[in-house]
């Protein structure tokens, strides 16, 4: 046995984590710097989310729920902007509400940015209800009257002051709910609003949650599902407005390739080490 001599398996299984971080970092930075664009395939889940909004007309109102905070912003903010661009492009009115306190500033920023692009007027074309705690209680009570929890908007102005809100009282007046989710609130929307009030729902979720949300799509409890940054990129492709989602996809692919290579290298190292240990055991028995 050559105890002091390092072979390939030792080298593979002791790669410094700093090297791995650096390679992953470069895999992300280089495509961004080079501005590499990548086409994405449209999945049926995102296509049906797109078609749900596409089926609406200018008299319809959608409710967008911001159920995320800055930690999930890179995945969900591009979805918010893409959906808003789609909705405002079709003259659909938008109500935004927030269940995560730290989601309020980022949701407001996204709404105001896209509304500005389309020249939309606050109170006539869109409204920001702001944050309310109480998630499930709020969801249930909004089925009776939105004003039970949202007497005023984010600016503390009475809802009835705004022309857009005069005829909107509960889910009967809302064509579609769009939940942008980084937690369990998507399930709450399905359980407390979809199931109880038969409300149409589409969800945009973080990548972590996407796999577990698919059964709700398959069972028809939601009409569409946008999963992670790739979902956002698909939606941007569908509306023909490239944004952060699409520009990030090349970096995403490069980083995935790097991770796949590391997984393969790690497995090779694991099997080499196992074979080496077995050989040592056999040699030990012979001695």
């Amino acid at each position: 046995m050559n105890e002091g001599k390092k072979d390939l398996s030792d080298w593979i299984t002791t790669i410094n984590r700093e090297i791995i971080y650096t390679i992953i970092g470069l895999a992300v930075i280089i495509p961004i710097l080079l501005g590499i664009k990548e086409k994405v395939q449209i999945s049926p889940a995102v296509k049906s989310a797109y078609e749900s909004i596409e089926s609406l007309n200018s008299t319809d109102v959608i409710l967008i729920s911001i159920d995320y905070d800055p930690a999930s912003m890179p995945e969900l903010q591009p979805m918010l902007k893409a959906i808003l661009r789609h909705a405002f492009g079709k003259e659909i009115k938008v109500i935004m509400m927030v269940f995560w306190p730290l989601g309020l500033p980022i949701g407001t920023e996204g709404l105001e940015e896209v509304a500005g692009e389309f020249g939309k007027v606050y109170g006539e074309d869109y409204i920001n209800l702001g944050y309310r705690p109480g998630d499930r209680a709020v969801m249930i009570d909004m089925g009776r009257e939105i004003r039970n929890f949202f007497r005023t908007d984010v600016n503390d102005v009475l809802l009835d002051t705004y022309p857009m809100m005069r005829d909107i009282h509960n889910y009967n007046d809302i064509a579609l709910i769009v939940g942008l989710e980084a937690g369990r609130w998507g399930e709450y929307w399905i359980q407390y609003v979809g199931s109880r009030y038969k409300q149409r729902i589409i969800l945009g979720v973080t990548g972590v949650m996407a796999a577990e949300t698919y059964p709700y799509l398959h069972s028809g409890q939601i009409e569409g599902l946008i999963g992670g940054l790739k979902g956002a990129a698909e939606y941007e492709t569908l509306i023909g407005r490239p944004g952060f989602g699409l520009t990030g996809m090349a970096a995403q692919s490069w980083a995935h390739i790097a991770i796949i290579v590391f997984i393969i290298i790690g497995n090779i190292g694991y099997f080499m080490t196992r074979r080496k240990e077995r050989r040592f055991r056999i040699e030990g028995r012979k001695e």
Binding site: G25, E75, H256
Partner: peptide
Amino acid sequence: AFGYTVMARISLLIGRMQFLL
């Protein structure tokens, strides 16, 4: 689920890198 989780974490890194650059 793991694949989606990797994508989610890389998305966060991409978001920060785009902000920095």
